[in-house]
Design a protein around this nucleic acid. Structure first.
Length: 949
RNA sequence: AGGACUAUAGCUCAGUUGGUUAGAGCGCUACCUUGACAUGGUAGAGGUCGGCAGUUCGAAUCUGCCUAGUCCUACCA
């Protein structure tokens, strides 16, 4: 093996080997275990969040595969409707100066498929680099043939069950993308705006309580007044009591509209009068409906003002309740221009009362970034209420558990107040809605046009045209767990792997995806008793990966880290280019470049996939965002190097030697018995932590065991034996333990660090008597309590105590590490003496001693001392030690003991403590006090003795 | 407005049902190239666990209030 660990030398070749040999496929035997990858955007690329979640899924998958489960990690990508369409539209505009309308629907879709073919491999290549052990043979895409069938089936059946309906409703309209979007795709932002106060003259010479012949309404969106159908006041508001049932004459359009009373109105806000615009405001829609009003739409799909208003009843039929003419002056004006004009005109008319500054929330489209307009359009909706009921129940009764649990609250509060889901999108890229219309507007929902004709008995000569709209991307993603397994066919894969075991995803898509997946799955998937099947048993919710300052990573902030750059490294210049090239806002480039040069003055070094993964795991504490720290990554790269070198040491001492693999007689040293015992304990700990999704704790346990126990102590303790002993049985025992424990460590580590564990395992396994083509399919280590040797563990703890005590004196007294020193022990119990007798050579070797003796009762020479339990460790001071330094050191120790004694005395002096605390706690404290007291006394004597010289 | 989460060493974070002398990594200090590893070794410094009350024999841990921050949902024109 090379002296230094080079991840690039091993990682890619191992992945290819694994994939070629089909190790990622389900084994076909064992209890099924399955995970569905959250499908990334097919044309996207992997970011740190993906790397994080995918690493977790891979660790769980590899762990269960090694435990013998029939394990499937299902892979696939999402067509990502709006996102993908926008990318291709931008590209088209930039390269050919054309819009999608110039091309037409079919040609444009061809362009997108081309783009998918061209860029679609990026994400899957990146997944391979991460070591993702997914089943590539069954990769799926949310718009592949099978998924198309699943989507149609679901749509048609939901329609037949009256859970999908079409209607003219107020929706969130994106005037830039020209599509409806769901509530979830709207981001409400705090903005400073204005509250305009308009006078609406009263009709029929009515007047207010204070004698005015007008009332004042306040609005943040003046242009919508063109669509006002009423004014509302609170029923108990004395100021306007006599006006209820009267009318106002709407200025500019001269529309006579009623004054109605409604509890919804807040008397304290503004003037207590609210203009009602049912076609342009969600609250007003409800209000208008309650008061038998109509809907007056005044806006086009571009959010410009119409020439003629469109007036509807709430059932969608046309209404002639009002004159539909709108003032010519506004026709075609953009909504914001119209706003200015309306305000100016009110001022002109002397009807502008005042303008207040006002803080408000403005809805923006999360993709387009423009202000969303509530607009009356024909859309398809999913009736979410009935679907939500079983989905809520499944989480309440624990069939689905969120990890961490607090996300269940979030889920419940959204689900219990769920609104119908607008699923139609006025886009081209997506699943086209399986509905057909005849010339009269009749709607026919079926899987195909032919089926529609049969089902609804439509003659062949009646022209049908399919709905132009497509479905929300999340509609198809909601079918992911069963759609990927072949549904609506009852495939073996579906029967074997559904329900899946765990979904690993971010909290940001609990509503978008997780909740909808639960609803859809439980409606369509039933078990043998016809009970709804859940899509997964656990939802492991990860935090977000942020940058080193806790800021969200984003292109516009220029703080995005590419996981592949962590793995392969990148030069500073390339990193700057990557962050500043192809920007939507080029003016930020300079700042980003500067910041990047400051943070990564040397670029980024290569750290390898294993180190990246291990870093992600150790940061993966539940329910918390992660602030990325390059130093952690470096630390775990060093950890890989540590393992590498430990393996080199083991190989150096075992290759070509007799390692006792054929059960020749062996004798195990104390160190052997100890590390074997500890291995059992660590195996139990890690297994438990993995089962509880605590990858952070598991990786920490592994790290501690490998570095602080196996390397720091076991390998060091093996050195004196390998160097000195002539005992062939003992040598065999040590060699056997060296390789066997390392071999087990590699299997323990494999789910975390697949590459380095495989690379080393290939060399170690034969020496440990293991055979097999890959570590991937070896058994995950299981602890054997029978191998735990309590005596050995106690002895090594003692041994470490003595060695650390001597090193401590050495360090504090500034004794050169090169200098071998004499050490005496005294005042020990019989147990100390036994341990001393059995382990002299270990101590002498690890503490670099010239001599080590048991003093008995003889008077010791003047020495530096340290206590290990009751036993004193003495380093004779002659020629070695600075008296003042020793006094200072002992005084520090004494202070500590004195404080401890005081604390314990106070505690035990408290009658209530002695009376109330459990007996074992009291006994423990008493023992501690005894130790501390005797330590205090010894230290005091020793200080006195040194001083007296 | 409602709700959730977070606050522990200079930095990034663990701390499982209340009982440790409160831990890790990085950083810092001193010493050390000893044949696995300087991507290393040995020793060390560093914390009134955000604040205030309370429950308890005992609180980083439980309760209440407060402060600061993050996020989610809803929204008054």
């Amino acid at each position: 093996m090379d002296k230094t660990y080079q991840p690039s030398d091993i990682e890619q070749t191992w992945y290819q080997t694994w994939e070629q040999h089909g190790y990622f496929k389900p084994s076909g035997t064992g209890k099924p275990y399955s995970i569905m990858i959250p499908p990334p955007n097919v044309t996207g690329s992997l970011h740190m969040g993906h790397a994080f979640q995918d690493s977790i899924m891979d660790a769980l998958t590899r762990y269960h595969r090694m435990k013998g489960n029939n394990t499937l990690w299902q892979v696939g990508t999402d067509h990502a409707g709006i996102a993908t369409q926008m990318v291709v539209e931008r590209k088209l505009a930039a390269e050919e100066g054309k819009s999608r309308h110039d091309l037409g629907r079919d040609a444009f879709l061809d362009k997108i498929w081309e783009w998918k073919a061209h860029s679609g491999g990026t994400i899957t290549r990146q997944l391979r680099r991460l070591g993702a052990s997914v089943d590539w043979d069954h990769e799926r895409f949310t718009m592949d043939e099978g998924f198309y069938k699943a989507v149609q089936e679901v749509f048609v059946r939901l329609y037949e069950d009256d859970l999908i309906y079409r209607g003219k409703r107020l929706v969130n309209w994106d005037p830039k993308l020209h599509t409806a979007i769901s509530d979830l795709e709207v981001e409400n932002k705090d903005k400073q705006g204005h509250l305009w106060h308009f006078r609406y003259p009263l009709a029929d010479n009515a007047s207010t309580a204070s004698g005015d012949n007008f009332i004042v309404v306040a609005t943040t969106r003046p242009e919508t007044m063109l669509g006002d159908t009423a004014v509302a006041v609170h029923p108990d508001d004395e100021r306007y009591q006599q006006l209820i049932g009267q009318h106002v004459l709407l200025p500019i359009v001269n529309r006579r509209i009623p004054i109605v009373a409604d509890d919804y109105v807040d008397r304290e806000f503004g003037t207590g009068c609210v203009k009602i615009t049912p076609a342009h405001d969600f609250n007003d829609y409800e209000l208008g409906k309650r008061h038998g009003s109509v809907l007056i739409n005044i806006m086009s799909k571009d959010a410009t003002i119409l020439e003629q208003a469109q007036i509807f009843n709430f059932d969608g039929s046309a209404s002639s309740a009002f004159d539909s003419n709108l003032p010519e002056a506004y026709a075609g004006l953009d909504r914001f221009a119209a706003r200015k004009q309306i305000v100016a005109d009110f001022e002109q008319l002397g009807l502008l009362e005042k303008i207040d500054d006002h803080a408000l929330k403005v809805p923006y489209g999360d993709r387009s970034g423009v202000v969303i307009e509530p607009l009356l359009t024909d859309q398809w909706f999913v009736r979410a209420g009935p679907l939500a009921e079983p989905a809520i129940e499944a989480v309440e009764n624990g069939d689905i558990q969120f990890v961490p649990k607090q996300y269940e609250n979030m889920y419940f509060s959204w689900m219990r107040d769920i609104q119908d889901w607008c699923i139609s999108r006025q886009l081209w890229w997506g699943h086209r809605i399986p509905a057909w219309y005849d010339a009269q507007g009749g709607v026919y929902v079926a899987r195909t046009e032919a089926e529609a004709r049969t089902k609804y008995a439509i003659a062949d000569d009646v022209a049908l045209s399919q709905d132009d709209d497509v479905l929300d991307t999340w509609f198809s993603s909601a079918l992911w767990t069963f759609g990927t397994l072949g549904w609506p066919e009852q495939t073996d894969r579906l029967k074997t792997f559904h329900p899946t075991d765990v979904l690993v995803t971010g909290f940001d898509i609990i509503f978008f995806w997780v909740a909808r997946m639960i609803m859809m799955t439980m409606h369509f998937m039933k078990d043998e008793n016809n009970k709804p099947q859940v899509p997964f048993k656990y939802v492991y919710v990860t935090g977000l990966i942020r940058d080193e300052h806790g800021d969200k990573m984003s292109k516009s902030k220029g703080n995005v880290l590419d996981p592949l750059d962590m793995i392969d490294g990148i030069s500073l210049e390339d990193l700057v280019e990557k962050r500043t090239g192809n920007m939507m806002q080029p003016q930020l480039a300079e700042k980003i470049a500067k910041r990047t040069r400051k943070t990564f003055s040397e670029g980024i070094a290569a750290h390898g996939t294993d180190a990246l993964r291990f870093t992600l795991f150790s940061l993966a504490s539940t329910g918390r965002d992660i602030n990325w720290d390059m130093k952690r990554l470096e630390g775990y790269r060093n950890f890989c190097n540590k393992i590498w070198n430990a393996a080199r040491y083991v190989l150096m001492n075992t290759e070509g030697e007799d390692c006792g693999q054929n059960d020749e007689s062996v004798r195990l040293s104390l160190a052997d018995r100890w590390i074997i015992s500890r291995l059992q304990q660590v195996e139990a700990t890690i297994t438990k932590q993995l089962d509880e999704f605590r990858l952070d704790l598991a990786s920490q346990s592994l790290y501690d065991f490998i570095w602080n126990e196996y390397c720091d102590w076991y390998l060091e303790l093996s050195k004196p034996i390998l160097a000195d002993t002539q005992d062939s049985e003992l040598l065999r025992g040590t060699r056997r333990t060296l390789v066997r424990v390392l071999e087990a460590i590699l299997r323990l580590a494999h789910p975390f660090m697949p590459f380095i564990s495989e690379e080393i395992w290939q060399r170690i396994a034969p020496l440990a008597g293991k055979s097999g083509a890959t570590i991937m399919t070896q058994e995950y280590p299981t602890p054997d309590a029978g191998k735990i040797d309590a005596v050995a563990m106690g002895d090594v703890e003692w041994l470490r105590g003595v060695i650390v005590a001597i090193r401590n004196i050495r360090g504090e007294m500034d004794i050169s590490p090169a200098r071998a020193i004499p050490v005496l022990l005294r005042h020990g119990h019989a147990e100390d003496k036994r341990r001393f007798d059995e382990n002299r050579s270990y101590i002498a070797s690890l503490a670099k001693l010239e001599s080590l003796d048991w003093l008995g009762d003889a008077e010791p020479p003047l020495s530096a001392t340290q206590l290990v339990g009751d036993m004193e460790v003495l380093v004779p001071m002659a020629g070695l030690i600075d008296v003042d330094a020793e006094v200072a050191r002992l005084t520090k120790e004494l202070d500590k003991s004195a404080k401890e004694v005081a604390r314990l005395e106070a505690k035990l002096g408290n009658e209530k403590f002695v009376k109330n605390a459990p007996a074992d706690v009291v006994t423990k404290e008493q023992a501690k006090l005894k130790d501390a007291t005797s330590a205090q006394q010894r230290l005091a004597e020793q200080i006195e003795k040194i001083r007296s010289l």
